[in-house]
Amino acid sequence: MKAFTVVEGVVAPMDRANVDTDMIIPKQFLKSIKRSGFGPNLFDELRYLDEGQPGQDCSSRPLNTEFPLNFPRYKGASILLARENFGCGSSREHAPWALDDYGFRCVIAPSFADIFFNNSFKNGLLPIVLDEKIVDELFTKMYAEEGFSLTVDLPNQCVRLADGTEFAFEVDAFRKHCLVNGLDDIGLTLQDADAIREFETQWQAKSPWLFREHSA
């Protein structure tokens, strides 16, 4: 997993409440065999005027020019500013996969759906809960200033504006540790690699037949 320490980036809006995972990545794309490559289909039904099909080349599809992510000013955005209950709906891990693949590292909203919130941490995407008033303020500033960007400082648990204003946010200590160090569950387990090897050595002595190489 990518480590998340300090991220500075352009902020893009998803200015509606209850954005569900079907909106984030519609179901026809779940047939994919990949965990990457969902970026072009992020918010597919909002971004394009036609109906997206899995495996399709999106570069020639008609864009919905009224959808903010298609505005030149939000190009390359890495921070998504959203409204309450972001990520509700199904448990698909494809939702954070799609946001990540598009290039977002962080979503800021007044509240998140539970499973999405969890899945995000597992995939190196930082969901930040800020007070509704602060989120409102950020939306206002973002609309007013082209190229509006923020600094998300995870070690210090704050979101920083260019003028130095800081908004503190809460994050579970264990999750923070994993993100800052780029540790997913696998990374964590691999910290115990010696213990695993030690186990294997004695286990192999007891059950050598379990460790035979074989070929098809």
């Binding site: 997993m1 065999i33 990949k34 965990r35 990457s36 891990e93 997913d184 696998i186 695993i196 294997e200 460790f211 035979r212 190489e213 074989h214």
Partner: peptide
């Protein structure tokens, strides 16, 4: 399994014990 293998590739990991 496809996303699991993809995950390994993306993280540059190898299976711990192929057998």
């Amino acid at each position: 399994s496809p996303q699991a293998f993809e995950g390994l590739r993306m993280a540059g990991r190898k299976p711990w014990r192929i057998s």
